[in-house]
Design a protein around this nucleic acid. Structure first.
Lengths: 147, 147
DNA sequence: TATTGTTATACTCTATAACTATA
DNA sequence: TATAGTTATAGAGTATAACAATA
């Protein structure tokens, strides 16, 4: 029983959920980046547009919170989406806050990306049965609930 | 059946393994960063030292490969570990390549960090039973096998 | 005084290419 | 010429703090 794990292993980190998550995430994020690149999207850009599409009128601060980061991260993402005509910032009743809306072009982009995301998900879960995939999705959701 | 998902949801990304992985990973990496910060470690620094500890004599290129990135990422990590006396670079028979070894101080640091990592893993998997945790670890390993 | 959005800043992670020294 | 390690560079993601406008 070696403190740092056997030769050839990953030492302290071997076999942990934490490290398994890290390695699986790296594989996923790279596959998704490659799939989105030809379409001019990055994973955060897609996540932002998808969230706005599903939550019309959402405020930037709420969007940032749903994406799991601070307010200041939203602005440059929204700039890029608005420049491309995929999203609008509208001023609401409280003139401090904004209401975000996907434009028809934005909704159209989401529709066109959908099969691409299905294919991505298929590559990720290709080694698992449907039951295993569902079990994994549920376990992951319990690891990072709410939000 | 809405193309972008129902109101309040995450749109295209809702319920996918890919997105669940992203959110779970973010929770994990932040918890680990906070746990390691008081001890002067970051997750990549710990992963590198742990790998060298478990694989004495490993070369930087092999270490980088095991960590899932390119050769050039190893050097600054090794610099920081060597400066702190946790690791040594020794020249091998082929004088182009190096053999990496954890120093006694490095092995000691790994030993001291172990309970901290166990606590981290416990926080991550706290909501799961032992059987669920093991099932999750196995499913994750099948998502990013080998390496 | 508190809140919203934004800007500025800095740091880390990451990828690519170029450089050196060895083989 | 090929390989190993390093350096330089650039870009993306992230966090914090500070700012202007509004409440």
């Amino acid at each position: 029983m070696n403190d740092v794990g056997g030769p050839g292993g990953h030492g302290l980190l071997a076999g942990t959920v934490s490290y398994g998550l890290k390695r699986a995430y790296r594989r996923v994020i790279r596959d998704l980046e490659e799939a989105l690149r030809p379409h001019g999207f990055t994973p955060p850009l897609l996540a932002a547009l998808s969230l706005v599409g599903a939550n019309p009128g959402i405020a930037p601060a709420h969007l940032a919170e749903a994406m799991g980061h601070g307010r200041s991260r939203a602005a440059p993402l929204l700039d890029r989406l608005e420049e491309r005509g995929l999203l609008e910032r509208r001023t609401g009743a409280d003139r401090r806050s904004l209401e975000l809306h996907a434009t028809p072009a934005g909704l159209d982009a989401l529709g066109r990306l959908r099969p691409l995301l299905d294919a991505h998900e298929g590559r990720i879960t290709g080694g698992l049965s449907a039951a295993e995939t569902q079990a994994l999705a549920r376990l992951l959701d319990r690891l990072a609930p709410g939000q």
